[in-house]
Write a protein that binds this DNA or RNA. Structure first.
Length: 387
DNA sequence: ATTGCTTAAAGG
């Protein structure tokens, strides 16, 4: 018998193994504020989680990190129900979407990446992505720190694509539960269809309002900066788009029934896949008795229908990497028209309906940070223009 | 195509 996961928070990569023992979550005395919140949540009949999961005093949410030992194998798919068909159109052959994202969904950062510069995204896909910079490294470390404040991770071996999706769904359910009972969660995975395209992302932070104002969670994204400068408009616009993607995905999950059949079909997954003993025990420790992949998705679907939509106001928080001081806090509203237009524009590029667009003249400064600038036609275009 | 390879997001 192995042990429960380590409760040590000293290292950033807590790789405590999960081996069949129900996970012990640290318990704490519940405060009056938490109790008030709990009562409010219960009276609004929002969370209906199994007892194990509904402990309001859990300090951490447990998130599963998938570790894939060998090449994943799906169990042979039995009968595909004939009435369920993939409603999303196939990516045009030869498009970047088809070549690089056909077996997995487009990521929110794929959208924001192309909003920054489509040509840079294209170069990255075709010729290899640039190395991560020191600033990116520091940003990743800071985000891991923030996540560790509220999420305890356990490592779970997965044997198939179905199991990797199952963990995503379970992490969502635990995270959503944590949001309702503790008022905050971080690094929450979301998935959905945006403009006929499957999209996935990870919400940086969700918090319930502290006052009695509303029950709508607020989406937050922390951006760390290497220098103590105010972010440029292009950077803010890019981050706004990112947050709007998350809001769209969250609200979409909450308001509409998750299209289970389309999901299985689009990603060619086997709903009847029998989960490994490890995963079933992990699921059971969360309060979900699931034997097959389909059952996990079913729990996920039910969970979504009980969640509140997010606040119209979105929050961007810029902090300095050296001392975590706040450089700027920036609230803005979801703009449905702007969002839809922006998504459609970027999807045209991903679907190969048009050539990659270069940055505008006003944002040509972006090229100074791009490792592809030397071989990019945009440089030529600008020098021609100057003559 | 590959930063870390299991994925997204990391910052400009």
């Amino acid at each position: 018998m192995n042990t429960t996961p380590s409760t040590s928070t000293s290292t950033s990569t807590s790789t405590s193994t999960f081996n069949g023992v129900p996970i012990q979550v640290p318990l704490e005395i519940i405060t009056e504020e938490e109790m008030a919140f709990l009562e409010a949540a219960l009276s609004s009949a929002l969370p209906l989680f199994p007892p194990r999961c509904s402990s309001p005093s859990s300090l951490f949410r447990v998130a599963a990190i998938a570790s894939l030992p060998s090449s994943p194998k799906s169990q042979s798919q039995p009968l595909r129900s004939p009435d369920i068909e993939d409603s999303t159109p196939p990516a045009p052959v030869g498009s970047l979407l088809h070549r690089f994202r056909s077996r997995r969904a487009l990521a929110v950062t794929d959208i924001t990446g192309s909003e920054w510069c489509e040509k840079q995204v294209e170069f990255g896909l075709l010729h290899g992505r640039p190395k991560r910079t020191a600033a990116m490294e520091a940003g990743s470390i800071r985000h891991a720190e923030l996540e560790e404040e509220v999420v305890e991770k356990v490592e779970i071996q997965i044997k198939s694509i179905e199991e990797s999706w199952a963990l995503k769904f379970m992490n969502f359910m635990v995270g959503a539960n944590q949001l309702l009972f503790e008022g905050l969660t971080r690094e929450l995975p979301v998935i959905g269809v945006v403009e006929d395209t499957w999209m996935i992302g990870v919400i940086d932070e969700l918090q319930m309002p502290v006052g009695e104002s509303s029950l709508n969670p607020c989406l937050v994204d922390t951006k760390t900066r290497y220098r103590a400068t105010i972010p440029s408009e292009a950077q803010k616009r890019n981050a706004r788009l990112q947050l709007m993607c998350y809001k769209y995905l969250w609200d979409n999950l909450v308001v509409n029934d998750f299209p289970t059949g389309h999901f299985f079909d689009h990603f060619a997954l086997n709903p009847q896949y029998v989960l490994s003993e490890d995963i079933r025990q992990y699921s059971s420790s969360l309060g979900f008795e699931a034997k097959t992949f389909e059952e996990v998705v079913s729990y996920f679907r039910n969970t979504c229908s009980m969640l509140p939509p997010s606040d119209e106001q979105l929050l961007l928080r810029y902090e300095l990497q050296s001392d975590h001081s706040i450089l700027e806090e920036y609230k803005f509203s979801f703009d449905a028209n702007w969002f839809k237009n922006e998504i459609q524009k970027r999807l045209e590029f991903w679907r190969g309906e048009r050539e990659a667009e270069y940055v505008s003249d006003a944002e040509r400064w972006k090229c100074r940070f791009c490792k592809f600038s030397a071989s990019c036609p945009v440089t030529l275009a600008s020098s021609n223009k100057a003559e």
